[in-house]
Design a protein around this nucleic acid. Sequence first.
DNA 1: CTGCGTGCAAAATGTTTGCAATGTG
DNA 2: CACATTGCAAACATTTTGCACGCAG
Lengths: 147, 147
Amino acid sequence: VDKKLRQSIEGRMRAAGMRVTPQRFAVLEYLAGTHEHPTAEQIGVAVNSRFPTASRASVYNVLHALRDAGMVHEIYLDDAVARYDANLAPHHHFICRACGLLDDVEWQIAPNPPSAIGGGRVVDSYEVILRGLCADCGRAASSAGPG
Amino acid sequence: VDKKLRQSIEGRMRAAGMRVTPQRFAVLEYLAGTHEHPTAEQIGVAVNSRFPTASRASVYNVLHALRDAGMVHEIYLDDAVARYDANLAPHHHFICRACGLLDDVEWQIAPNPPSAIGGGRVVDSYEVILRGLCADCGRAASSAGPG
DNA sequence: CTGCGTGCAAAATGTTTGCAATGTG
DNA sequence: CACATTGCAAACATTTTGCACGCAG
């Protein structure tokens, strides 16, 4: 079940001119297998629970290498902590105001993203952060009632 | 020229139940007068260049108080640093990939923001970050040519 | 074998806290 | 006058750096 995944991961690393180390493999495999957007610390904990050990510094090092190689996205949301995402397909994010749940959203903006927004600025990408209530928190709020 | 502004700032603080101190006044006045989205440190430097002194801790303290009172917005963009914005009108942000310029954008999403995006989630606000080249960097890029 | 990548621990941010002094209302 | 707010400095959390060893290629 993982032979293909393993080769895909290693192949992509090599294509980027990176050496393949157990730490790097573990981090990318972990990121590829989650829909969450873990912080460096969460990644470190998860990876270390399965592999010899990846020191904090190496986790950061690996994440930066993967980011620079374009293999993961580094995103900043409401707190001053970097989060990482192996989902390279265009997508946006939803944050639950009540519980902090962080989720991907497939919804697409407008018919097309704007290419020019005035002032001579040219847009080539965009990112949307939607806020509101997730299903659970929405249910809780409506059963509490308005008053 | 500032008597009205002064009274507006003080009035809004009082309406929020806050005491008006020179530090608070200076921070809010500074934020109201800039279109940039300064970090706490930038605010501290700017404020201290004109007023007795506002300690680092007080700058943070004031910013949090203003944020909690809904008088400024705290935003996180590409770096793990909080930025502050006194522009309470709905707007989005543009970041120049080349020079890091940070700007407001009046452009509005779609016809309407989405209210439901599936999964039982309900959206009540959204924020868009547009990336690309600002006018200056765009000019520089096109004069360099495609190679 | 060469040298990149790792691990460790210390340094460098950016932000928060505790307590006494101060100034606002 | 009372109490919120300030200032200072130390605590904190997260991320970065320097150097010696090990492993990938």
